[in-house]
């Protein structure tokens, strides 16, 4: 059978969702952000909620998330996305409101905002990208950087006595009464991507049912910050990140 006969519209089984704009993503090759953006866009398309979804982008590499998903976007000050989301959802309860935050944004400068939004049980979705490093500013230590991990501000590796311990913020979030769904996923292979998409879908569905805050952590790679290749970064993540940040649902009610 000739390739020409396969490549026909009626045979298409997977392609770019129209919720994604045509803009070329500014992310480095292999960056997990692109996959997660795509999954959110696909969930929005499948649920038919493009006209009802408001995204809140953070400060960090994904500040430009608004360039890629064709929905209404707010761009928050560093760490404050959950505060914007709180007001947005309370003022427009029929909308789907999600924040998209990195580890510096959510687990360092914005710790107060995320804790209290989750504790109030705001009916929002939080997508938390944990790649254990500050990408946009050039690879400095994040709150989630592993012990021993080398970054621009821990050139000899993170040491507990000097830099403190990596923060398992998702475990903390899971303790809060206001959260209904807390999960940790990843996107390094097709099975993981499909699981993450299911998690994001569930989070958006929860938000419509007013069950409380849904929190999806995606353990991610930053091959530029980690100074390695995309493929090796995925392997490093599996070997080093997963033992400390184990995947799976922490709470689902």
């Amino acid at each position: 059978m000739d390739i020409k006969d396969i490549i026909k519209p009626e045979n298409k089984v997977y392609g770019k969702t129209p919720v994604l704009k045509d803009a070329v993503l500014h992310y480095c090759p292999g960056c997990s952000h692109g996959v997660v953006h795509k999954l959110i866009a696909e969930v929005i398309e499948e649920m038919g909620i493009q006209d009802k979804t408001i995204g809140i982008s953070p400060v960090g590499c994904s500040v430009f998330a608004y360039n890629y998903l064709d929905i209404d976007w707010q761009q928050a000050a560093h760490g404050r996305a959950p505060a914007l989301a709180t007001a947005t959802k309370r003022l427009m309860p029929d909308k789907y409101v999600f924040t998209y935050q990195g580890d510096g944004d959510l687990a360092s400068i914005g710790t107060a905002e995320i804790m209290h939004a989750c504790n109030r049980g705001e009916n929002i979705v939080v997508i938390f990208i944990n790649n254990a490093i500050y990408g946009m500013t050039g690879g400095q230590m994040a709150p989630t950087t592993l012990l021993g991990q080398v970054t621009a501000t821990t050139p000899y590796g993170r040491q507990a006595d000097l830099n403190g311990y990596p923060l398992k913020i998702t475990e903390l979030i899971a303790q809060l009464e206001g959260t209904c769904y807390v999960t940790r996923q990843s996107v390094q292979n097709p099975a993981a991507v499909r699981k993450t998409k299911k998690a994001i879908r569930k989070a958006f569905e929860n938000s419509a049912m007013n069950k409380g805050t849904s929190f999806v952590e995606v353990v991610s790679t930053c091959n530029s910050g980690w100074k390695t290749t995309p493929v090796k970064a995925n392997k490093w993540m599996e070997e080093n990140m997963f033992p400390f940040y184990p995947l799976g649902d922490m709470k689902d009610r």
């Binding site: 089984v13 070329v24 993503l25 992310y27 292999g30 692109g34 795509k38 390094q188 991507v193």
Partner: peptide, 10 residues
């Protein structure tokens, strides 16, 4: 797994 959504599959 493509981060840049550049692949269409038939």
């Amino acid at each position: 797994v493509c981060p840049d959504a550049v692949i269409t599959v038939y």
